[in-house]
């Protein structure tokens, strides 16, 4: 089996990325029971940039980001790679050393809004905790700041809401409160993990616009994790597509949607029910199921579901490479065939 090292993404501008993951690997368990859920992921975001991360459930989106923050649950560990925050490696730092980074440099809006707030603490108390205990703010100053933040994220009657417990807020309001908490220390990087999955479309659209405008106002880098390509289309500057714990394609958002180069990305785009389709035509789902990391697939992990798969795909892992030099790296053996003409051939409707 050929196991090629992927080349880390080149920084796009001279500024250099705020956050860069280099060849990050994450596994659960040890010895024979060890399961590799993230392989060799390299990503980078710059100041003010929005990076979308897309992929099916279980492909490793959340684990990658939790690893970056050193928040992997018990049993999970980083097996390789670096997490560079403005060039400083965070991997291997002790919890005490990580604490100033969390929330202040990199903030996380975690996946499930409904359970991500402490049910036994008022919203105000949870919001203010780091400000008072680590930010050196007085109680009244923290209160003032919390009210401003809740106002900013559009929670009506902000001052009164500080005294509410999470169960007294609707799902959309809880999501907003979490966003307010995440931006409270003006982080350099905001990671939003499926921030709208639990919400209905009208609330979803409000939250997405809120996150996007906050990013522009505060100049944060945004990493938006989702399985909904529609969500990414509206917000992200660039998109990374993950499959089975590996990045399979990265490109500018417009390029990715207009000319996907990886068969999986293309299949994903074709599988979406589009509101603009005029007739009740058949959907084009991807056949089969996403792979289970406990039973890894040999060669290219997508080969059992790929309509372009060849002999080599079963045996050799393709490298993530940017053959064209157009900032559009892709991990596929038959990429030249796939590139640009793909959507024209398969995607005609």
């Amino acid at each position: 089996m050929i196991l090629a090292q992927s080349s880390p993404l080149r920084p796009i501008s001279a500024n250099g990325p705020v956050l860069e993951l280099k060849n990050l690997g994450v596994a659960y368990g040890r010895g024979a029971a060890s399961v590799q859920v993230v392989h060799d992921v390299s990503l980078a975001v710059e100041r003010g940039e929005a990076l979308g991360i897309v992929g099916e459930s279980g492909c490793g989106k959340s684990q990658t980001m939790l690893a970056a923050l050193g928040l992997l649950p018990r049993g999970g560990r980083i097996t390789s790679g670096q997490v560079l925050l403005e060039g400083q490696d965070l991997v291997g730092r002790s919890p005490r050393q990580m604490r100033p980074v969390r929330g202040r440099e990199i903030a996380l809006i975690s996946q499930d809004a409904l359970t991500s707030l402490n049910p036994a603490m008022t919203i105000g108390k949870q919001m203010a905790e780091p400000m008072i205990h680590y930010g050196g703010m007085s109680r009244s100053a923290a209160r003032q700041r919390c009210t401003e933040l809740l106002d900013l994220v559009g929670i009506p009657g902000a001052a009164a809401r500080l005294a509410s417990y999470p169960h007294e807020l609707s799902g959309g309001m809880r999501q907003r409160a979490l966003i307010a908490m995440a931006i409270s220390a003006n982080p350099k990087v905001l990671i939003a993990d499926e921030p709208t999955t639990a919400l209905d479309v009208t609330t979803q659209s409000q939250i997405l616009r809120l996150i996007d405008s906050l990013r522009k106002e505060l100049g944060m880098a945004l990493i938006l994790i989702t399985h909904d390509l529609g969500v990414v289309a509206g917000v992200a500057d660039r998109v990374a597509v993950l499959y089975a714990g590996r990045v399979v394609e990265t490109a500018e958002t417009e390029t990715l949607f207009a000319a996907p180069r990886h068969p999986y990305t293309k299949a994903l785009l074709d599988s979406i029910a589009r509101i603009e389709d005029d007739v009740a035509e058949r959907l084009n789902p991807i056949p089969g199921l996403p792979p289970d990391p406990r039973n890894p697939v040999s060669g290219c992990a997508f080969h059992p579901r790929c309509e372009y798969s060849r002999e080599i795909c079963r045996n050799a892992l393709p490298i993530l490479e940017d053959g064209t030099g157009a900032q559009h790296p892709v991990r596929c053996h038959v990429d030249p065939f796939v590139s640009s003409s793909l959507r024209a051939v398969g995607g005609a409707r």
């Binding site: 939790l66 923050l69 928040l71 649950p73 018990r74 919890p95 604490r99 100033p100 980074v101 969390r102 929330g103 202040r104 903030a107 996380l108 975690s110 996946q111 499930d112 359970t115 991500s116 707030l117 402490n118 049910p119 603490m121 949870q126 905790e129 780091p130 205990h133 680590y134 979490l178 908490m181 995440a182 409270s184 220390a185």
Partner: peptide, 21 residues
């Protein structure tokens, strides 16, 4: 192991405070 503990950790709250508060 709850999500809200992860939230608190992600905001830089110390381990002692996490357990106690």
């Amino acid at each position: 192991n709850s999500d809200y503990i992860r939230t608190a950790r992600s905001r830089g709250v110390s381990e002692v405070r996490i357990v106690l508060c």
